[in-house]
């Protein structure tokens, strides 16, 4: 399927706090932004890792939760009508003959932008893979880290591993379509909605599924087709479980991912930038927030905000080399206030 190419001033990779604030700073300079994020919502680590944990070091907000900060930044960016592309991972970055950048995602979206801003934090959030020997051979065939279509699992003998909401939700949702359902977790305690835990226990009581305590230590099967697993029980003894499908749900981790292939200088999985423009070694590609590094770098959200402001000035000059850029304050500039919709 060929997609229409989206032409824009700026593509921002990552819709975390720094990416969102970059929309604001770039917007004041009339630069239109498209944001791409692998998660299904904005906020990055704030939304994924600690939506409810309080943050104490945002200037002017003595205490704010990760989710609330995300909501406020979304509101602040809204006047500039950023466009969000969720559940997409940027795979390719390629320079066009006219100096712009072509950005392609794993979902087939194509963008052409004057400037690319990498605000990807610790990288892409990806499912944690259990370090069980040989698991790679089963991945995509009988071991899955996500459920895209429930129908795929109809009639399967499913084993789900984990104790969070994903593990519990999919146990409950897939049980009716599965031939058999088993859940394995290291303890009889869950980090999941109490209602889901109750439902799971009810299914066990009704003999519609089984719940086991322990950890999977080995997989058995042939040609990528799983036939069973060895489990180390909490008493230290091994036992076997039969299954043809395994769904491990151990949350998400961050991986640098395809960024490593874009020809950018990297230092220990971080992107070195200068502290005037926050530009990478490649002109027109900027990096802000946790993903960049420079002498004295602190991985603080507030540092990312500062980086976004300076980056925006440099990005404007890169995109409009002949234009005059006059620095203005939102407190006094009618033209900026019009952009914000307050004048």
């Amino acid at each position: 399927m060929t997609q229409e190419t989206i032409s824009t001033d700026v593509v921002i990779i990552g819709a975390g706090p720094c990416g969102l604030f970059a929309v604001f700073e770039l917007g004041l300079l009339d630069m239109k932004c498209h944001l791409i994020d692998i998660l299904d919502r904005s906020g990055g680590q704030c939304a994924e890792l600690y939506p409810e944990k309080p943050i104490y070091d945002i200037p002017g907000l003595p205490v704010v939760s990760g989710q609330e900060l995300t909501d406020r930044l979304m509101e602040q960016a809204a006047p500039f009508k950023p466009e969000f592309h969720y559940n997409e991972m940027v795979e390719e970055l390629e320079k066009l003959p006219d100096g712009r950048w072509r950005v392609k995602t794993d979902g087939g979206l194509v963008f052409e932008a004057k400037v690319v801003v990498i605000a990807a934090g610790g990288g892409s959030f990806q499912p944690k893979k259990p370090p069980i020997p040989g698991i790679e051979a089963y991945e995509g065939k009988s071991v899955f880290y996500a459920v895209k279509r429930m129908e795929t699992f109809r009639g399967k003998n499913i084993l789900i591993s984990g104790g969070g909401d994903s593990a519990l939700d999919w146990t409950i949702n897939l049980q009716p379509v599965a031939a058999s359902m088993q859940l394995i977790h290291r303890r009889d305690g869950f980090r999941a909605a109490p209602d889901s835990v109750k439902k799971m226990h009810a299914l066990v009581d009704e003999k519609k599924m089984q719940f086991h305590l322990g950890q999977i230590t080995a997989l058995h099967g042939d040609n990528g087709q799983l036939e069973g697993v060895t489990v180390k029980g909490n008493d230290g003894n091994d036992f076997q479980l039969e299954c043809d499908t395994l769904l491990p749900f151990f949350g998400l981790t961050m991986k640098l991912g395809p960024i490593a292939n874009w020809g950018l200088n990297l230092h220990e999985n971080l992107i070195p930038v200068d502290t005037e423009k926050f530009q990478t070694n490649v002109p027109g590609i900027f990096a802000i927030g946790d993903i960049n590094t420079y002498p004295g770098k602190l991985k603080l959200i507030l540092s990312g905000f500062h980086e976004a402001a300076l980056m925006a000035q440099a990005a404007f000059r890169h995109a409009n080399p002949d234009a005059k850029l006059t620095f203005q304050y939102t407190t006094s500039s009618t033209s900026l206030q019009k952009k914000l919709g307050v004048a």
Partner: peptide
Amino acid sequence: NDDEEAMLDEVPVL
């Protein structure tokens, strides 16, 4: 504590 136990749940091999 409970919070730590809950996060340890995300470690596939403990």
